[in-house]
Each structure stands twice: as C-alpha cells, then as structure tokens.
C-alpha cells in the first residue's frame, strides 16, 4: 500500500511542464490533486517512471469570465469552485453539482482538470461540463488545441488527451439567465461516486414552450450520455409533468447500463429514469420562475 518509486519533477511554468511531458511521453504522469492518481499508485495499479507535479505551475488556478464564457484553470481546486460566488451566479448547474463530488477533504485537493481528465464514468464534472457544452484547452510543445466535451470523452476512462498534452483550462459558455438547471444523483452514501446522476438545462420561448433542453446522464455508460432523441422530443412542449415522464422513459430505453457490485443494470436504468423525470421538472420550474421574475 505504498507507492512505487518514481522520479519527481515540479515545474514552475506551463512551458517547463509541457517540455517534460514531451521529453518523457508515456513514461510520465501528470500529478494534480492526486485524489485519483495517488490511490492508484498506492494500490500499485500504475507504475509511472516520472511524476510531473503541476501544483506549483503558475497560472493554472483561476476562475474568471472571458467573453461570455466562464474560464476555469485546470488546477483550480474543486473546493474553490464550490465556494466561488462567480460560479454560483454565472453557472448554477456547476455550483449545484460540486457538493456531490466526494467529501470536503477530497475536494480541498482535487482539481477540476484532474476529474475531467481522469474521466470516471460515474464522476459528476464530466457530465456537467458536457451538459454545459464546455470546451477543453489542451497544450503541448506542438501547440494548443481546443476540444469540445463531446469529442473529449472517447470511452471508459479514455479521453482525447495525448500523452504529451496538458489540460490547461476549461471554458464553459455562460447559460442565458432565463435558463433553468438541475443536478440530481443517487449514490450509496453521501460522497460516493454516482450510481446514476443527471444534469439538465432548460429554456422556454415567449409562449412558454421548450426552446432548448440538455439532458446528460452519468454512471450508466462509459462516457457522459446525452440522448439527442429525448431532447428533440421535448422541444416545443410545455414540459409539463407528463412530458418529463415520457421523455425520461424514452431516455431510459436507450440506456445500456453496467451491472456491478454496487448496483444492477436494471437498478441503474430505473434510477436514471426517475432522476431524469425529477430533474426535468425541477429545471422547468426554475426556468419558469426566472421568466416570471423577468430575469
């Protein structure tokens, strides 16, 4: 239960960090909060030759608004996002999901970039950032590229990140103020990974008909699962309880959840269906109250 030996590097700038990644390639692992990586080292599931610790790299920890987007540095602690007034105001969905991630002692070290890169299918952040249509800024010595959440998640624990790339920043379009959102989750205990979790965003047009909806599910597929058919079925409806009920059934029929020691596939499908219905109703209610308040 002790980590294997490794060479430790603690660069101070992004340039130094990506140069180290270019030099060592597959032999190196980036160390951010360490809340997923260090357990794997302690359990000897991984034996990297080099650890590139990015905790002292300048300019990777920030939360700011840039041209209609919320930009968050990859090394920003989950706890800082949870406490951020700017996040609460501009991106309530992200704010609402934060306390579901692990425990406060884990969030005080864990980073947003680490969770997004680790890509656990039951993790909250990949699902929330997918629902928000977020983008990932990836840097290497070869240059910078920006990848959408939909393209970033390629499979179970797999992402578009190449071994020499550093995720530096996450950019999330700020949803219009009249958007209603909801995040709901079922887990075995408070702070455990989700058996199923659902992130929803809803907007109505002037006639009170659904003009925009996003429904993304965590914990059931290898990647955050978005059902385009379910979303399409809701457009133009008033998103009344029966519309939410029908949509959640449609979504559940598309799911092919895994069975494991924590829950059976049927349990996960059922939990996802009920959460989707409740989250759609809750987000619709919130969107309507924004409209009535004239915000």
């Amino acid at each position: 239960m002790k980590p294997p030996a490794f060479e430790y590097r603690d660069p101070r700038t992004r340039e130094e960090a990506i140069a180290l990644l270019a030099e060592h390639g597959e032999a190196a692992k980036i160390l951010a909060g360490g809340q997923s990586l260090v357990p794997m080292l302690n359990l000897r599931l991984l034996r990297p030759e080099y650890l590139v610790d990015i905790n002292r790299v300048a300019g990777l920890s920030f939360i700011e608004v840039k041209g209609g987007e919320l930009a968050i540095g990859a090394c920003t602690r989950q706890r800082a996002i949870e406490r951020s007034e700017l996040v609460r105001r501009t991106c309530p969905l992200l704010h609402e999901a934060m306390p579901f991630i692990a425990h406060f002692q884990i969030r005080s070290r864990g980073t947003i970039g680490g969770s997004l890169s680790h890509a656990d299918p039951a993790a909250e952040l990949p699902t929330v950032v997918t629902a928000l249509g977020g983008r990932f800024v990836l840097r290497s010595v070869r240059g910078e590229r920006v990848v959408s959440a939909a393209d970033f998640y390629t499979g179970f624990l797999s992402t578009a990140l190449r071994p020499d790339e550093l995720l530096t920043e996450i950019r999330v379009p700020i949803p219009p103020v009249q958007t209603g959102c909801a995040f709901m989750e079922v887990s075995r205990r408070h702070g455990d990974f989700a058996l199923a979790a659902v992130a929803v965003l809803v907007r109505f047009d002037q006639d009170g008909r659904c003009a925009f909806v996003r429904l993304v599910v965590a914990g059931v597929h290898g990647v955050p699962f978005r059902s385009a058919d379910t979303e399409a079925s809701l457009i133009g409806t008033k998103l009344l309880p029966e519309d939410a009920e029908n949509a959640s059934r449609l979504m559940a029929a598309e799911l092919e959840p895994i069975s494991d020691l924590h829950a059976s596939a049927d349990y996960r499908r059922q939990a996802a269906r009920v959460l989707a219905r409740r989250a759609l109703e809750c987000a619709a209610l919130r969107a309507r109250s924004h409209a009535e308040a004239g915000t």
Binding site: M1, K2, P3, Y8, D10, G34, Q35, V38, P39, N42, L43, R79, H103, F104, Q105, I106, S108, R109
Partner: peptide, 25 residues
C-alpha cells in the same frame, strides 16, 4: 492508504486533506 477512511486527515494550509494522498515533497 487510498483516501477513503480519513484516519490520516491533517490540516494543510488551512484545508483538511488526506495525508496518505500527498507526498512529503
């Protein structure tokens, strides 16, 4: 020693953290 039980929790620069998931360096 993998962050679950919390017995090793210490206060690190004002925040409660797992000392089994941090390296001394």
């Amino acid at each position: 020693e993998h962050g679950v039980c919390g017995a090793c929790t210490v206060v690190f620069d004002g925040e409660a953290v797992r000392s089994c998931l941090l390296f001394a360096v």
